[in-house]
Computed example of a mutant assay.
Amino acid sequence: MPQTVKGVIARSKGADVEVVDIVVPDPGPGEAVVRVEACGVCHTDLHYREGGINDEFPFLLGHEAAGTVEAVGEGVTDVAPGDFVILNWRAVCGQCRACAKGEPWYCFSTHNATQRMTLAEGDPMAGAELSPALGIGAFAEKTLVHAGQCTKVDREASAVAAGLLGCGVMAGFGAAVNTGGVSRGDSVAVIGCGGVGNAAIAGAVLAGATTVVAVDIDDRKLEAARRFGATHTVNSRETDPVEAVRGLTGGHGADVVVDAVGRPETYTQAFYARDLAGTVVLVGVPTPDMEITLPLLDVFGRGGALKSSWYGDCLPSRDFPVLIDLYRQGRFDLDAFVTETIGLGDVEAAFDKMHAGEVLRSVVVLDEGTGTPTATEAQA
């Protein structure tokens, strides 16, 4: 039987989000219904609300989530009711040209649920189909996803922390480790020290980088970066970040520079702050109107690599269980990314805090059994 649950929607561009009743259908072939336990508030959700992704309103927001599989549809074998899972927005198809080449993290045909959740009776738009954020829609007590979007992990992990791998933390960690290929002894600079940037710092440290330079315009974020392992910090309002990074790397520039902001000026800084054969990784998301101009001779003459990182070039089935194991071993502090835990009705306020730079992550808790993080003093 279809179920009616509470969920957070963006009804129209720029309007405050609302908690409303939504209808979750029974899972069809290849689908799963997941009882959401916790879901992080990500910038992407705000982009959806502002119409920055597309105009397919109303949106069911939320995508950075963990929970328990409640029911599965026909043909589902990889997960079963009762499994604790992290939701992902890269359910690889296994058949496209990227998958066929053995590069499924570039999959061009990822799966989403075929059915749509809808607004419940009594709503002014009753029956309207909801567009789930990144194909997930997890600011809801339950959600319908493709079964391939469910990655089974160890139940001992806190859902509040585990869900963060569903987007921002994985994007940053993967930008450094998967895309940037940071290895032992490397020097790394990260521009932009929000959740994604600090995840890149934590990933670089775990991979063995010995010099890790955090760059931001906010001293609060730089303080947080040190807690994630940055060896040096640079406030780029006060200091030229390119010269600072070079000065901290023997005058050469960093082996890997991660731009976690995604603006023309920060990308230019990243380009010139790397070593001659260094790597630039763009993981911050630019807006459609942004353009960049670089002297082509400089592009040619500096060698190395200019890369973009989409979801940290992750493969959820490979990366999520490994990072959860590292978390359980105390080697990767996911709890430190959680600034506060909130309820469904607090999402709009969480967006305001995000704008003000007051949080690394606000996390919506929908199941009291998930507990709260042990380290919540992280500041933005």
Rank of each mutant, 00 (worst) to 15 (best):
Arg90Asn: 12
Gly301Cys: 11
Gly229Thr: 12
His355Met: 14
Ile217Asp: 04
Ala126Pro: 11
Glu64Leu: 05
Ala270Thr: 12
Gly40Ser: 07
Lys142Ile: 01
Asp45Asn: 13
Phe337Met: 08
Val261Met: 07
Ala214Cys: 09
Gly172Trp: 01
Lys13Asn: 11
Cys39Val: 06
Pro58Ile: 11
Gly122Glu: 06
Val34Asp: 07
His43Leu: 13
Val23Ile: 13
Ile201Glu: 06
Ala380Thr: 09
Asp218Trp: 04
Leu222Asn: 04
Ala138Cys: 11
Pro81His: 09
Lys13Leu: 12
Gly357Arg: 07
Gly253Val: 12
Gly52Glu: 15
Ser236Asn: 07
Val190Trp: 02
Ala224Asp: 00
Gly181Arg: 05
Thr376Ala: 11
Asn198Leu: 08
Val299Phe: 10
Val190Lys: 01
Arg90Gly: 00
Gly229Leu: 06
Ala277Gly: 13
Gly172Ile: 05
Asp26Tyr: 01
Gly163Leu: 04
Ala38Gln: 08
Ser309Asp: 12
Pro132Gln: 07
Met125Ile: 01
Ser158Val: 02
Ala270Gly: 04
Val69Leu: 04
Lys101Cys: 00
Gly330Ala: 09
Ala38His: 04
Ala65Trp: 02
Gln3Val: 13
Pro241Trp: 07
Met170Glu: 13
Ser187His: 04
Ala140Tyr: 08
Ala15Phe: 00
Pro286Trp: 04
Tyr327Met: 10
Arg220Trp: 00
Ser236Phe: 11
Glu358Trp: 00
Thr239Pro: 05
Lys307Asp: 02
Glu18Ile: 12
Glu238Thr: 13
Cys96Lys: 06
Gly168Phe: 01
Cys99Ser: 10
Phe320Arg: 06
Pro104Cys: 08
Pro373Cys: 01
Gly94Tyr: 03
Met117Arg: 05
Pro124His: 09
Thr44Trp: 00
Val283Glu: 05
Cys99Val: 14
Thr376Trp: 00
Ala214Arg: 08
Gly247Phe: 04
Phe139Cys: 12
Ser131Phe: 05
Leu164Met: 15
Met125His: 14
Ile86Pro: 08
Gly278Tyr: 10
Val8Gln: 09
Val69Ile: 14
Val153Phe: 04
Asp216Gln: 08
Ser158His: 07
Arg155Asp: 12
Asp123Pro: 10
Gly7Asn: 07
Val41Thr: 06
Val261Asp: 04
Gly357Phe: 03
Leu315Cys: 06
Pro132Ile: 02
Asp216Cys: 07
Leu296Lys: 02
Val190Pro: 00
Asp333Leu: 02
Val257Ile: 13
Pro104Asp: 08
Leu87Thr: 07
Ile201Asp: 03
Gly345Gln: 12
Asp78Lys: 15
Leu119Phe: 12
Ala273His: 05
Ala98Pro: 00
Thr143His: 06
Gly284Val: 13
Asp335His: 03
Gly357Val: 13
Gly301Asn: 14
Ser187Thr: 15
Lys101Arg: 15
Val69Phe: 03
Thr231Asn: 05
Val17His: 03
Ala305Ile: 02
Leu360Asp: 02
Ile217Lys: 14
Val215Lys: 07
Leu87Cys: 08
Thr143Trp: 05
Lys221Thr: 12
Phe271Cys: 01
Asp367Phe: 10
Gly30Phe: 08
Phe57Asp: 06
